[in-house]
């Protein structure tokens, strides 16, 4: 039962990484939105997670926590920063993207607050929480 719960948790993580990766590819290659610099950094953190979680699922390895958490944490921080830029809490000038697509530019705005970096933030936050839960329940059992 416990094993099954751990497995299901990993499965959900993999699905989230899949949706986030395919979704970002949909925006860039189908809808032709050019990704800005910060988007690229978040993509670098998100894309490997698909394969890392997939391998962990097939081999059922709980140690995946150690491999995935650094990517998730870095991605989460970048997406937090990106959202602060978009919400104008951090000024655009302070962001590293001066050339090409400005990071403060909003391609989509669903329901008045859901932008692409916000979707990324949701994905990384969910992954971060699930991995924390995973760690507490299945890795560091006390």
């Amino acid at each position: 039962m416990r094993e099954k719960q751990a497995y299901n948790l990993l499965f959900v993580c993999w699905i989230i990484a899949m949706i986030a990766s395919l979704g970002s590819l949909f925006f860039s290659s189908i809808m032709n939105f050019v990704p800005c610099t910060l988007c690229w950094y978040q993509r670098i953190c998100m894309y490997p997670l698909v394969l890392i979680f997939l391998t962990a699922l097939i081999r059922f390895e709980k140690s995946v926590f150690y491999y995935s958490s650094s990517l998730i944490a870095i991605g989460w921080f970048i997406s937090l920063y990106h959202n602060l830029v978009q919400l104008k809490i951090i000024p655009e000038e302070a962001s590293p993207c001066v050339q090409g697509v400005p990071c403060a530019m909003k391609y989509i705005n669903w329901l008045g607050f859901i932008t692409i970096p916000m979707l990324s933030f949701f994905a990384f936050s969910i992954l971060l929480s699930l991995m924390y839960l995973f760690y507490r329940r299945f890795v560091n059992e006390k």
Partner: peptide, 25 residues
């Protein structure tokens, strides 16, 4: 069973991506 679920989910999401992409374009 697990293999079927994993493979099925992957296939479903990729098909969703391709079909969605086709109709969007």
């Amino acid at each position: 069973n697990k293999t079927i679920i994993i493979g099925g989910s992957a296939l479903f999401l990729i098909c969703l991506f391709l079909i969605g992409g086709y109709f969007f374009k």
